[in-house]
Design a protein around this nucleic acid. Structure first.
Length: 574
RNA sequence: GACUCAGUAGCUCAGCUGGUAGAGCACAUCCCUUUUAAGGAUGGGGUCCUGGGUCCGAAUCCCAGCUGGGUCACCA
């Protein structure tokens, strides 16, 4: 990369790097730097009376500097937070040679550099806990200037808010926006809390295939790829349900997986093409048991994170205190539309949809229409945690038929803030019924529903060996994290949300290539600045426009170069 | 996919009824020399997202595109 393509500040930093090397300082040392304390531990436990933390070593990134001559202050940020450093010239340079302070600390170090310090904790005259630095070590030189975010009394100044920068360069977001890290710490805690809850009951954490030859367990468009050695298409899983059930058939009483699933569909505030789901299957249980289990799990997560069941989400407060309200789907529709849909025929339902202003088409069966009515008219009303139970059989091809109500299944969804958070069934374990349901799905598929399920013959074979009665539950971890951390966009709970790839910056041909064409040295940079980086691009330029562009650039930027003649320019381009 | 808003210095943003590109922070040089979103002085830094068009003249107006956000559609 040529220096002309770097910003002024980047050039300054590269020069500082070079000077450090000349002073015999390795800006990227290989050796371990033994840290014995974190900034948080000092902040939490320092006491002037005890006079503790008198021989400490800590490391982190320099986030600000206040140079005061022979005494300076800097803020060091490690993984636990920030702490002020006090750097005194004669402390870090006890001998005659003051280079480490005057040159290295004051001039060659920059905001963003990673350093290690040894010294002792103390309180400054203005009362701020600080580290009195006795020794300073450069651990990694930063060549790119960080955005400068300042903070006072919890208020941020000039915080980086540009979503593109925050999501593409999450590392920068994490460095400069302190609240971001907290979301991800909580995300980890949510998962750990759930895992601990499951392990306490003796359930087994398992892994199942992500590459599947039949993308089963949910009706969604899959990503497709190809395995070269087997010469077969493979799909990235849209769900792991059918594999977990195979394990129940195999004799495990409880299995669960935190799984990345992939769906090739639209992206928005609540959908990312890859997302995380926790699915759990427990033998000899039913969906009523699973409701209690789910409540307990969710309540436990809320308490683990916040110490209370009440969690703020945007303008509202969600209370995850057990028990959650339970409403059947038919009751929900009756309450929010006034229509009783129990026992209605397909034609009657179509008429109800029409009255409610819901568009229908020929491909929609009873189940799909009921689902539409619920989605349009009911779903958004359930802000506080609510179980919606007993779904129509057409929408639930993997769910056991209801024990007492024909046409329904033993299924619930947990709704929070008007969105589906978890989904659970008494699992269908009748292999003959399951085969028929798959065939019904195939018919829907032929009717035009391109999301109906593929038939997984091996899964049916497994059921034919006999699967114990089982209840399963899936919960969206990204969504749960959004609800639990008060983030309204899925992008804020994923470290690296999906983005369109950046166009790579075009690298420039070296000076020699331009010189070969007879272009004089002082014009090469001008040509690069107007966006022509390759000599081959010159061949395609019109001489007149090119002539105008470079002379205009010269004038506009007051470079004071003598313009070439049009003839000369013609020779360059020929 | 549709509509809509935005893209100006390393960062946050102003300028946008067209007329020589600005501020704060950051950076550089200097002053001060135990400060704290430090202070003072001076200075450097810009393909105003890209490409067309209108015009004597475009960051500004028009068209197309790129990237991102929002809303809607799609999304068991």
């Amino acid at each position: 990369m040529s220096l002309t393509e770097l910003s002024e500040q980047e050039i300054v930093r590269r020069n500082s790097l070079q000077k450090m090397k000349e002073l015999g300082i390795d800006p990227y040392p290989a050796a371990e730097f033994p840290v014995n304390v974190s900034t948080l531990e000092i902040k939490e436990n320092y006491s002037a009376e005890l006079n503790n933390f008198q021989e400490i070593a800590l490391a982190g990134r320099i986030m600000s500097r206040r140079i005061m001559g022979k005494a300076s202050f800097a803020e060091l940020q490690d993984s636990t937070g920030r702490l002020q450093l006090y750097v005194n010239r004669d402390e870090i340079c006890p001998d005659e040679d003051k280079t480490l302070y005057n040159e290295v600390f004051k001039k060659l170090l920059d905001i963003g550099d990673v350093v290690g310090v040894k010294g002792f904790a103390f309180i400054t005259q203005v009362g701020e806990l600080s580290v009195h630095v006795k020794e300073l070590f450069v651990l990694s030189k930063s060549l790119r200037p960080l955005p400068i975010v300042k903070e006072k009394d919890g208020q941020l100044f000039d915080a980086v808010t540009d979503p593109e920068m925050r999501y593409r360069q999450r590392y920068v977001d994490l460095i400069v926006n302190p609240y971001v890290k907290d979301t991800f710490l909580k995300r980890s805690k949510i998962i750990n809390t759930m895992r601990q809850f499951f392990n306490e009951q003796g359930y087994l954490e398992v892994e199942t295939p992500i590459l599947q030859s039949i993308p089963g367990g949910a009706t969604a468009r899959p990503f497709i790829t190809h395995h070269n050695a087997l010469n077969i298409p493979l799909y990235l899983r849209v769900a792991n349900e059918l594999y977990l059930k195979r394990l129940i058939v195999g004799g495990f009483d409880g299995v669960y997986e935190f799984a990345k699933d992939f769906r090739n569909e639209g992206m928005d505030r609540t959908h990312n093409p890859e997302f995380t789901v926790m699915e759990i299957y427990v033998a000899y249980k039913d969906y009523l048991w699973m409701m209690n289990f789910t409540e307990e799990m969710v309540e436990r997560v809320a308490i683990a994170l916040h110490g209370t069941t009440k969690v703020q989400l945007g303008e509202i407060e969600i209370d995850y205190q057990r028990p959650f309200k339970r409403v059947t789907m038919y009751e929900a529709i009756r309450e929010h539309t006034g229509f009783e849909i129990s026992g209605k025929t397909e034609e009657e339902l179509r008429d109800i949809c029409k009255q409610l202003g819901i568009e229908t088409d020929k491909t929609m069966g009873k189940g799909k229409m009921i689902d539409e009515i619920f989605g349009e008219k009911c779903e958004h009303h359930y802000i506080q945690p609510t179980f919606i139970i007993d779904y129509p059989v057409e929408m639930s091809p993997l769910t056991k038929k209801h024990r007492s109500v024909p046409g329904l299944t033993e299924r619930f969804e947990l709704m929070v803030n008007g969105k589906e958070l978890a989904n659970a069934y008494s699992e269908l374990n009748d292999p003959i019924d399951q085969r028929e349901r798959f065939e019904d799905q195939m018919k829907l598929s032929e009717k035009g529903d391109d999301e109906a399920m593929f038939i997984d013959q091996d899964f049916l074979r497994a059921l034919e060996y006999g699967m114990p009665p089982t209840s399963g539950m899936g919960i969206g971890i990204d969504r749960l994290t959004m609800f639990m951390t008060n983030n309204l966009s899925i992008q804020d709970v994923l470290f690296f949300p999906q983005m369109k790839p950046e166009k790579p910056a075009e690298t420039s041909d070296p000076d020699e290539k331009f010189l070969e064409l007879g272009i004089t040295a002082e014009w090469i940079e001008v040509i690069r600045k107007i966006g022509v980086k390759k000599v081959k691009d010159l061949k395609e330029m019109k001489a007149g426009k090119f002539f105008n562009d470079i002379c205009g650039f010269n004038k506009k930027n007051k470079l004071g170069l003598d313009n070439p003649s049009l003839d000369e320019v013609n020779k360059w381009l020929s």
